[in-house]
């Protein structure tokens, strides 16, 4: 794949995923109520009928029969027989990606999980971006011993294998969403700070910066006008790759059972959950796994594309 194509494909599929996760709830028909007794582990494409009673109960089953004055909702263990006068409404819905152990619509879960996974990773990347850029700029502008000290600290932090650091932090602070964002962000800003520092140091000696300084530009103006625009490209590339790593890290923690609590759907958690019923419900682990892969690959393509564009642009 050529660089522009990679960029297009990466950005395209990433956009598609994000839009699907965000817009899904408005576009798709409302998912049927979760009926664990009658609609659990239905394969992708199954069609179910949702029966709502006037007192607000909901039954969902692939087999609903209306006969005379009764409505029979079939279930694997026992059938529910309702009086027709008790039924407020009935509708048929297709479960495009099937249902899980609780009879929940997998498509809906997948989209909800995507929103959480992507949001957590994006916010964590933001945390990393802010901390990493801050530390990198601080080190570069301080210089001397302070710079050396900061960078040794960064080196030491970089030596920790990411997952080890995450497990350590997750064991210390049991994650809710906010803690998880902080933990992920704080374990992945080090590379960024190195990048920023390196870029700033390289730019500092360049003619246009020296010229600006000679022309009496303030330090703040040089940051804004010269450093930031030049750093933005490498940062964008780094951010794309980092986001992919963060999605993987979040899902790994969820899979290991030390990520978000299991009542929040996440892709990693769905894979772990799906592994429990791999034989009866292959789609439960497969689909979120593929979703993670798709997201990570799009981000990798995007990062590659950006990198090559930068390389050719600079040449």
């Amino acid at each position: 794949m050529s660089a522009p194509r990679r960029l297009r494909v990466g950005a395209g599929s990433l956009g598609l995923l994000v839009v699907a996760c965000l817009a899904g709830p408005w576009v798709l028909p409302v998912a049927p109520a979760a009926d664990p007794a009658r609609a659990a582990l239905l394969p992708p494409g199954a069609v179910v009928t949702e029966v709502t009673t006037i007192d607000g109960r909901a039954y969902v089953s692939p087999e609903v029969e209306v006969e005379g004055e009764t409505v029979t909702v079939a279930g694997p263990r026992r059938d529910e027989v309702l009086a027709r006068t008790d039924v407020a409404s009935m509708r048929r819905v297709r479960l495009w990606l099937g249902s899980d152990r609780f009879g929940r619509d997998v498509l809906g879960q997948l989209l909800a999980g995507g929103r959480i996974s992507v949001a957590v990773a994006a916010l964590a990347a933001l945390v990393a971006l802010v901390v990493g850029t801050g530390v990198g700029l601080a080190a570069a502008s301080a210089g001397g011993a302070v710079d050396a000290a900061i960078m040794r600290l960064v080196d030491a932090l970089l030596a920790f294998p990411t997952l080890f650091l995450l497990i350590l932090l997750a064991a210390l602070f049991r994650p809710g969403p906010a803690v998880l964002v902080a933990v992920l962000g704080l374990s992945s800003w080090m590379g960024l700070s190195r990048l920023v520092r390196g870029q700033v140091l390289a730019l500092r000696g360049r003619d246009f910066v020296l010229a600006a300084r000679a022309a009496g530009a303030t330090e703040g103006r040089i940051w804004r006008r010269h450093y930031l625009p030049n750093i933005a490209g490498p940062l964008a590339q780094d951010a794309a790759l980092r986001l992919g790593d963060l999605v993987l890290a979040e899902s790994t923690l969820s899979f290991l059972g030390i990520g978000l609590p299991p009542d929040l759907p996440t892709w990693g958690g769905m894979v772990a959950e799906g592994h429990r019923v791999m034989v009866d419900g292959w789609w439960l682990a497969t689909l979120p796994g593929l979703a993670i892969a798709l997201l990570v690959i799009s981000l990798a393509l995007l990062g590659d594309g950006i990198q090559e564009r930068l390389a050719t642009g600079a040449a």
Binding site: G244, S251, T252, G268, H275, I292, V296, I297, A300
Partner: peptide, 22 residues
């Protein structure tokens, strides 16, 4: 091999391992 490599690198390792066991 490029496409497969990209896929392998993107697939979560726990997913691959679970599938391999299965």
């Amino acid at each position: 091999s490029t496409v497969v490599g990209l896929g392998v690198a993107g697939l979560p390792s726990f997913w691959v391992a679970g599938l391999a066991v299965l």
